[in-house]
Design a binder for these strands. Structure first.
Lengths: 201, 201
DNA sequence: TTGCGATGTATCGGGCCGATACATCGGGCC
DNA sequence: GGCCCGATGTATCGGCCCGATACATCGCAA
């Protein structure tokens, strides 16, 4: 999951670890507060040995604006194989695509995903949440006398969140089917339709 | 976190692993779908070597109804030290008490927590969510032109969830302060006020 | 009696986290 | 000039938790 996110961000621009973490936090703020360095650096190492990303330690710092100075910052950039890998990860959907983290990351890169895949993911997610919802309803109906008031309140709140998310997903699915992008709900971002852009020579 | 949950459930009744998992799923269904065995069994082992719980392999199966028969099921029960440990974990609040998992588990055992602690936890959680909310508002306000429509939609949805949760917490805090337990919102559970019961000879 | 699904216990590799330890830079302060 | 301090930045370590996998037993039906 992190792999996908890192590859996606490095596709936009080369970065060093610190920046990557910050970007990750703003782009996936809903999903995870901030990625730990104890996760980030090992993952970067892994991606590097796999050949998906490469380093260019500061020397050719023409891409990076001279933020501070010329020191041991390690700038990571995606490779050609990395771009292929990104596309592969982005397109392949599995069970883990539908849990909270997986869905969030995929959704965050929807503007790079073709519509068919978008729909598949949204529907899979909806099904997942519906299952969770049914489970909660079951408990509320069957075991409500076995549980104390606080536990019940927790279930009710969870059920409410599920119903809300299902409705949100329904809306997104409808929009997706009818051709127009997200919701463009309150306020910002009038233009920029999501082109399923693929840039490779 | 799991430690607390297991201790709490075993305080209600002795159980074997399978049951424990099922109970965990119904009580914490909102938080985590179902605990993995790869987590459960090592944790049980850890609790056992620590002396918080003990086993009684089936032989004295008078407590457990003869669900299937007399085989290698390992029944776990809490020890006196385990009960102390549970009370300790329940009362001690830290930063991890306010993240999703931690808060969920603590809340699920609120009927065994004194009111002062309940209020402390609810307020801490509210603060935590408010911070997340502010972070999202920041992003939405500052970086909305740097992000694509889907990412923005994700942030908006996350922000909405935050606001909703804050409102929920406000309500719980108000109820808590005014003396009466949870919400008793729609439908069930008219009686059963939460007594901070402690049962030990 | 053979096979099969539900029940039940257990391990293994790996992802991710929090805590921690380092270095270096820019700038304020004496 | 010289000094400390907070922001920037890279990195490791122990530990929790997960999914996949492997077993072993029981009740039941073909």
């Amino acid at each position: 999951m992190l792999e996908l996110a890192i590859l996606g961000l490095l596709q936009e621009a080369p970065m060093h670890g610190y920046e990557l973490r910050k970007e990750l936090a703003t782009k996936l703020g809903t999903i995870r507060a901030a990625i730990s360095y104890g996760t980030l650096y090992p993952t970067l190492k892994r991606l590097q040995t796999a050949g998906w990303i490469g380093t260019a330690d500061t020397a050719d710092s023409d891409t990076i604006p001279p933020l501070t100075s010329k020191r041991g910052r390690v700038v990571y950039k995606i490779t050609a194989e990395g771009k292929e890998r990104f596309a592969e990860l982005l397109a392949q959907v599995g069970p883990e695509t539908y849990d909270d983290a997986g869905f969030g990351v995929h959704f965050a890169f929807f503007s790079r995903t073709d519509r068919a895949t978008r729909l598949r993911i949204l529907e899979g997610r909806r099904r997942r949440i519906e299952e969770r919802r049914e489970g909660l309803r079951e408990v509320l109906a069957r075991a409500s006398d076995r549980l104390d008031a606080y536990t019940l309140e927790l279930q009710r709140h969870g059920l409410d969140a599920c119903e809300r998310e299902v409705r949100w997903l329904e809306e997104l699915i409808t929009n997706e089917r009818s051709g127009r992008p997200p919701a463009a709900s309150a306020g910002e971002t009038p233009p920029e339709p999501p082109r399923p852009h693929q840039d490779r020579p």
